[in-house]
């Protein structure tokens, strides 16, 4: 009975919202023209990177803060010490060892490419995190326990750098308004910091969580 009711409600939702989407008129606000007009002053030539780190840099700043808070919450609810890593088959370990330098190279390429083509700090950080997870799964990288000073610095470096630059540039008038001449360099510096921190944070989501792996068996 409940199933039927939920099914009918979901169908009604899809029909009504879908119908509204199809009949929707042209958008009242279109930011495409503004983005294209300001692109030259943003310091990068790829519009998505320009929006992420220049026009809407505020969102990205807060997003990194959200990631850090999520990681802190995860640290608060997992309290077991890391279990000793279980080594995988030597062949798998060799493949992981071989793949890691290539993945780091891909991350650096994505970071560099973000200025003028698809890529950027998020994708580069994700590739770094994937390399760490791969090393952990084959038993070469132990799960993380309570983070030490170096790890803490690495986790917060991107956010701290971003925040420090935002504070230093407050004299420009608005938050995160870069001087046009230096915008390209500033964005690259921020993205490099974000790549390292995002890689560590995303890897931490896995490596802090998986430490109670096998603890019970």
């Amino acid at each position: 009975m409940k199933r039927l009711a939920v099914f009918c409600l979901a169908c009604a939702f899809v029909v009504l919202t879908g119908g509204a989407l199809i009949e929707l008129g042209p958008a009242a606000i279109d930011l495409r023209g503004q983005v294209a007009a300001q692109l030259a002053a943003s310091g990068v030539s790829h519009p998505v990177t320009a929006v992420l780190l220049n026009f809407r840099g505020y969102d990205t700043l807060l997003e990194v803060a959200v990631l850090l808070i999520a990681l802190l919450a995860i640290l608060a609810v997992t309290d077991k010490p890391p279990a000793a890593p279980v080594p995988a088959h030597p062949l798998l370990q060799a493949v992981a060892r071989g793949a890691t330098p290539a993945m780091i190279l891909v991350a650096v390429y994505l970071l560099w490419a973000g200025a003028h083509r698809p890529g950027g700090a998020f994708q580069a950080g994700a590739v770094l995190a994937a390399a760490a997870v791969l090393l952990h799964l084959v038993g070469l990288l132990p799960g993380w326990g309570a983070p030490g000073l170096r790890l803490r610095l690495g986790l917060t470096a991107g956010f701290a750098l971003f925040l420090a630059l935002a504070a230093a540039l407050l004299s420009q008038g608005a938050l995160l308004q870069y001087p046009p001449a230096a915008a390209g360099t500033l964005i690259l510096v921020i993205e490099a910091g974000l790549t390292v921190s995002l890689g560590l944070i995303l890897a931490g989501l896995f490596l802090f969580l998986s430490r109670d792996e096998g603890g019970e068996t």
Binding site: R32, P47, V48, V51, L52, R56, T60
Partner: peptide
């Protein structure tokens, strides 16, 4: 449109 694309990229992370 680059603006919603950038917002969704943030959203995925």
């Amino acid at each position: 449109d680059a603006v919603p694309q950038a917002m969704v990229l943030t959203g995925i992370v």
